[in-house]
């Protein structure tokens, strides 16, 4: 019994599968929530790192580069344990779910920062020059000229990272987040049948990533290539 649902082990595999589907779907909701929260953190933090890495002063750009390299080159699990156990030792106790989303977001911010930077650097330099000739502030240039043109270019790459984040969510089960794979494992532990729940998890993941990729492709196609239009 899990989340108030119990499983049916006495009427064959199909009945078992049907009985655990609602439980796995509860886990799926957590997986999706964690993916979206982690992705949101990665989007925001990545943008901040992208701006810092592109800062004119080396005192800002070098540390930012170092930190993102560090995030990228250390395993997600290490970062997760660090946030969950080391911070707790120092009195910062975060709920497991929040810690997991943060760890995902931090790890992926290193990648999204690169995506933002590539998107920003792909803007022809004439755009910055025109903005400077018209005397826009650096801030206005970034928010109204550069970013609206960069975002549509980077959407496909972001979509791929969203799918990767989803596939990394099971790592959070080691800090007790009950996402879909963790749920499947508990079912297996209790029923001694791992095949059915794990196969179902695989299938659900497949559907999820196909749907996600479809959405990303649709969003990408419907975005104007010249930038987010401002009338």
């Amino acid at each position: 019994m899990l989340f108030g649902f119990s499983w049916d082990t006495s009427h064959g595999e199909l009945a078992f599968a049907i009985s655990i589907l609602p439980i796995l779907l509860m886990g799926l909701v957590v997986t999706i929530e964690a993916s979206i929260a982690g992705f949101a953190v990665a989007m925001v933090l990545g943008l901040i790192f992208a701006v810092l890495k592109g800062a004119p002063s080396r005192f800002i750009s070098w540390p930012a580069t170092f930190i993102t390299e560090f995030f990228r080159d250390t395993p997600l699990l290490v970062q997760l344990f660090f946030l969950y156990y080391v911070l707790a030792d120092h009195g910062v106790i975060l709920p497991a779910f929040l810690t997991g989303c943060l760890a995902l977001g931090v790890q992926y911010s290193a990648y999204t920062a690169e995506v933002y930077r590539a998107g920003i650097e792909a803007i022809p330099k004439g755009q910055r020059e025109a903005a400077r000739a018209l005397d826009f502030s650096a801030r206005h240039t970034f928010t109204h000229i550069i970013l609206p043109q960069a975002v549509p270019r980077v959407i496909p790459a972001f979509g791929n990272y969203l799918v990767s984040i989803m596939k990394d969510v099971p790592v959070l089960s080691v800090v007790t987040v009950l996402e879909m794979l963790g749920v499947a494992k508990i079912i297996g532990d209790q029923t001694f049948d791992y095949l059915v729940p794990l196969t179902m998890v695989g299938g659900i993941y497949l559907i999820l990533t196909i749907v996600c990729s479809g959405i990303v492709r649709y969003v990408d196609m419907s975005l104007p290539k010249t930038g987010i239009p401002l009338k």
């Binding site: 755009q127 020059e129 609206p148 401002l230």
Partner: peptide, 16 residues
């Protein structure tokens, strides 16, 4: 300044 490559902002209407 008027540029050889125009450098208009492609995501903004002419008015904007």
């Amino acid at each position: 300044m008027v540029f050889q490559q125009f450098n208009l902002f492609p995501h903004m209407s002419v008015m904007r």
